[in-house]
Simulated assay, not measured.
Amino acid sequence: MHVLLLSFYFPPDLSAGSFRMEALVTALQRRLGGDATITVITTRPNRYGSFEAQAPAMEVRGGLTIHRIDLPPHQSGMRDQARAFATFAWEARRLVVRERPDAVVATTSRLMTGVLGAWAARNREAPLYLDIRDIFVDTIGDVLPRRATWLLKPLFSAVEKWVVRSATRVNLVSPGFMPYFQPRYPDRSFSVLSNGVDDAFLENRPVHQAKERLAADPVHVLYAGNLGEGQGLHHILPALAQQLGNAVRFTVVGDGGRRVQLESALAALPGHAVTLLAPVKRAELIALYNAADVLFVHLNDMPAFEKVLPSKLFEYAATGKPIWAGLAGFPAQFAQQEIENAAVFNPCDAAGAVSAFRKLRLHTCDRSAFVDKYRRTHIMNRMADEIARLGAGRPA
């Protein structure tokens, strides 16, 4: 069996989609055996301008071939992103026509890799397994100006309809997506296989500490992830730094389209206790998790983000550390119901955030049950099974 996998991000790049697809490739190799071949078409590392990682344009590891496409320099704006994807799509088309896959897999957050996957599946007359990590049509309604939304939303709704109807099987990364997709596409078959806990976050977990932490020193709070409009850190962190003063020391690790705004807002607070660091590799990130007292996650106050399930919650939960979470809707319910010692507040509500912070128990706890339930290898094994069944049904 031959699987063609399309992903805009793949290791050594840093993103939830990158790590998700790496785990899927490993699961497919286990599931399909030594005779199977997998071709990955992706990009050279480009997630963050401040993070550099070398990766060959073509890499062959037994039955796995990885093609990495060079992109022009780009930032987080939509115009730059569109130009970067156009480059990816143009080069990917040239590579796709060389393939004769039994199944095409496309993972997509901004919808466009899904478009490429739908085209590839039709062109190669193969079934499409579509992995949807975000509802792009919903998101643009929240992040773009009203005039642009009025023009673009009908267009992208039509594109989404074509992509979803082109897929033989559709997976949704969040159960919160189901109320959006199921009524719109009642004839489609959906799975819900979420993000999960990678083994990398299990190997160096801190030992469970039953004793309460003494509060003599400032509480060390860590945020690690994207600094974009979707996270809205520039709306909440300066207010928290101001209200909590020297009682809390923040470390922020990441980059993104709103980093400059965050830096500007913090610059207006003399003596603030916030340190901003560039993105780091996973091994360094895990060390930072282990050094922190509390892990912070935040999504902006927008309706689209009430359906998502941040991959960061799984990483954070695996550490056993207290989780301080600005979430609403489905992700808030998930954190409250599934994760012990997670204090949730409404996004962008600094007073509510401080109140939630006071409720945290400042020690690590045992979340073994959560880890067992959401271990990434188990989730990706199920996805690999679905893809294998899809490819096996193709006529020879």
Rank of each mutant, 00 (worst) to 15 (best):
Met1Gln: 11
Val3Trp: 03
Ser7Gly: 12
Ser7Ala: 15
Pro11Met: 09
Leu14Ile: 15
Ser15Asn: 11
Ala16Leu: 01
Ser18Asp: 11
Glu22Gly: 11
Ala23Pro: 04
Ala23Phe: 10
Leu24Asp: 08
Ala27Val: 10
Leu28Thr: 09
Gly33Lys: 09
Asp35Arg: 09
Asp35His: 10
Val40Thr: 12
Ile41Gln: 02
Thr43Arg: 05
Ala53Ile: 07
Ala55Cys: 06
Met58Leu: 08
Leu64Gly: 12
Thr65Trp: 05
Arg68Tyr: 05
Arg68Ser: 09
Asp70Cys: 02
Arg79Met: 07
Arg79Leu: 15
Ala84Ile: 12
Thr87Gln: 05
Thr87Gly: 05
Ala89Glu: 14
Ala89His: 02
Ala89Tyr: 02
Ala92Gly: 05
Arg93Asn: 03
Arg94Phe: 08
Arg94Lys: 14
Arg94Thr: 14
Glu99Cys: 00
Arg100Gln: 12
Pro101Leu: 10
Ala103Met: 06
Ala103Phe: 06
Val105Trp: 03
Ala106Phe: 04
Ala106His: 00
Arg110Cys: 13
Thr113Gln: 10
Gly114Lys: 02
Leu116Ala: 08
Leu116Glu: 07
Ala118Asp: 03
Arg122Ser: 08
Arg124Phe: 07
Asp131Cys: 07
Ile132Gly: 00
Thr139Gly: 06
Ile140Tyr: 00
Arg146Gln: 12
Arg146Trp: 10
Pro154Asn: 05
Pro154Lys: 03
Pro154His: 04
Pro154Gln: 05
Phe156Asn: 03
Val173His: 01
Val173Phe: 02
Phe181Ala: 07
Arg184Cys: 02
Ser189Cys: 10
Ser189Trp: 07
Phe190Lys: 03
Leu193Thr: 01
Ser194Gly: 09
Phe201Thr: 05
Phe201Ile: 02
Phe201Asp: 07
Phe201Leu: 04
Pro206Arg: 00
Val207Thr: 15
Lys211Arg: 11
Val221Gln: 10
Ala224Lys: 01
Gly228Trp: 01
His235Pro: 10
His235Asp: 09
Ala241Gly: 03
Thr251Asp: 06
Arg258Lys: 13
Val260Tyr: 04
Gln261Ser: 14
Gln261Ala: 08
Gln261Asn: 09
Glu263Arg: 07
Ser264Arg: 15
Leu266Phe: 06
Leu269Tyr: 02
Ala273Cys: 13
Val274Trp: 00
Thr275Trp: 03
Ala283Arg: 15
Leu285Asp: 12
Asp293His: 15
Asp293Gly: 14
Leu295Cys: 10
Asp301Asn: 10
Asp301Val: 01
Met302Arg: 13
Pro303Leu: 07
Val308Tyr: 07
Pro310Glu: 04
Lys321Glu: 03
Ala325His: 09
Ala328His: 04
Pro331Asn: 08
Ala332Ile: 07
Ala332Gln: 00
Gln333Arg: 08
Gln333Trp: 07
Asn341Leu: 13
Ala343Gly: 11
Asn346Glu: 14
Pro347Ile: 05
Asp349Thr: 05
Gly352Cys: 14
Leu360Phe: 12
Leu360Thr: 15
Arg361Thr: 14
His363Val: 08
Thr364Val: 12
Cys365Val: 15
Val371Gln: 05
Asp372Ser: 13
Lys373Gln: 15
Arg376Cys: 04
Asn381Ser: 14
Ala384Thr: 12
Glu386Gly: 03
Gly393Pro: 00
Ala396Leu: 13
Ala396Arg: 14
